[in-house]
Amino acid sequence: MSDQTSETSRMRGLMLVAGREIRVRGLSKANIVSMIVTVVIVGILAALPSFLGGDDADEKIGLAGTGADAMQTQLDAMGGFDVTLFDSAAEAERAAEDGDVEAAVADGRVYSENGLDSAVQNQLDSAWQAASVQTNLGDAGLTDAQIAGALTVQPLESVTFGDDSGTDSITGYFTGLVISIIMFMMLMTPVQYIAMGVVEEKSSRIVEILLTSLKPWQLLGGKVIGLGVISLVNLVAMVAVGLGVASATGMLSDLPPGTASAAVSSIGWWLIAFALFGTLAGGVGSLVSRQEESGSVLTPLIMSLTLSYLGAIFLLNAPTSTFAVVLSIVPPFSGIAMPTRMAIAEVPAWQIGLSGVLLALAAAGALALGSQLYKRSVLYTGSRMKISEALRRAA
C-alpha cells in the first residue's frame, strides 16, 4: 500500500509541474495568438494550390449534325467538357455567336466568337477525327462491338532510363515542404523554451526551493510534458486545418498517395523527436547559470535540427536516393526527414519501421542522458559546466 501511495505521490508531483507549464505558457495570450496566427497561415498555404490552379470549369461545347452523338461520347471520355446537343447546325452556330457555348462543332466546322485555346482546339480535332472514324466504320457495316475493338488501343507504356526520384508534382513538393517546415518549427520552439526555462529557474534560485519537495526528474519531466502538450495541441490543430482545407478545396485527391496518412503520422514522429530533443535541451540547459550562456550549450541541438530540416528540403527533389534513405532512417535526422519523405513518395514498410525503432531508441538514450545531466548539475552555480564533468559528479 505504501509503494502505491509513493508512486501516486511521485506522479502527482510530475503532473503538478506539467500543469504549471501548461497554465503559464500554454494559456498565455502570446501562445494563443501565436497558435491562431500559425493555424491561419497553414490554412492559407493549404488553399494556395487551388487558387494558383486557375479556373477549372468545364468548356461549354455545342454539337450538331452528322456524328454529333459519336463526338459527344469522345468528349465525355476526355473529360472537362460540358456538351450540349442542338437539332441543327444553324442552332449550334447561333449559340456560339451569342456566347451560350464557347464553341460549336457541326458538319466539320468549329464555330467560336474569338477563337479557341490551342489545347481545346487540339482536343476538339482529336474528338472529331475519332468520331468520324467511328461513324465511317458504322457506315461500312461493322457492329458496335467490332467498332469498339477497332478503336481500342493500348496506351504507350512509359519507360525511363534516368532516376525518376523527384516528386510527382508541384503540389507534392509543396506539401512536403510545408510538413518539413512545420516539423522544424514545432521542434525548435519548445526545445528552446525548455532550456531557457531550466536556466531561468536555476539563475533565480527557485529550483533550490522546488527541489525541497520535488525530485529532479519530476521537475525536468514535468517541464518536458507540459511544453510537449502545448506544442502537440498546436501541431494537431495545424494538421487538422491543413487537411480540412485541402479536402474542402478539392486538393486532397490531387496530392500524392499517402500524403494524408503521412501528415497524420507526422504527429507520432514529432512526439518521439520531441522526447529526444526536449530532454537533451533540459539536460544541457542545466549546465549553465545565465541566459546569456544558454546559446552555447544549445548550439549542437539547434545545429542537429537545422541539418535535419535542410536534409528534408534536399530529399524533396530525390526522395528515393541513397542519401534520402539514409537521412530518413538515421536519428535524429529521421524525425523530420521520414515524415517529409512519406508525404511525397512511397516508402517501404521496413524502412519506416526501422526508422521508428532507431528514433525511439535514440529518444530513450537521450532521456537517460538528459535526466542525468539535469540531476547532477541543476544545483551547480558558477561558470558553464562541461558534460563530462557533470557526468563525473555524484548524483
Rank of each mutant, 00 (worst) to 15 (best):
F314E: 02
G80Q: 03
W270A: 03
S247R: 13
S377W: 09
L316Q: 10
I206C: 09
E346C: 05
A92M: 10
V224A: 08
L271I: 15
A312M: 05
V42H: 01
L361C: 06
E91G: 04
T340P: 01
N114D: 15
S50L: 00
I32G: 06
T299C: 03
Y309D: 05
L252R: 00
P300D: 10
D55T: 00
A106C: 08
L116R: 11
L177D: 09
V133Q: 12
L271R: 07
L227S: 13
I61H: 10
A390P: 00
L361N: 01
G65M: 02
W128H: 13
M188N: 12
L276T: 12
L358H: 03
D139G: 05
K386A: 14
P155T: 08
G356T: 11
W270V: 05
A64I: 07
Q74L: 09
G242Y: 10
T143N: 00
A90S: 14
M303F: 15
D100A: 14
G221K: 11
L142W: 09
A312F: 08
S265Y: 12
D100F: 02
G250M: 03
I36L: 15
G19W: 12
A96Y: 04
S266Y: 04
I329F: 06
T73E: 14
L358N: 06
E91W: 02
T299D: 06
I182G: 03
G172E: 03
G370W: 09
S6W: 11
V326P: 09
D3Q: 12
A366D: 04
I225E: 07
G43S: 09
I36H: 02
V159K: 12
E200S: 14
R393G: 05
M71A: 02
I206E: 01
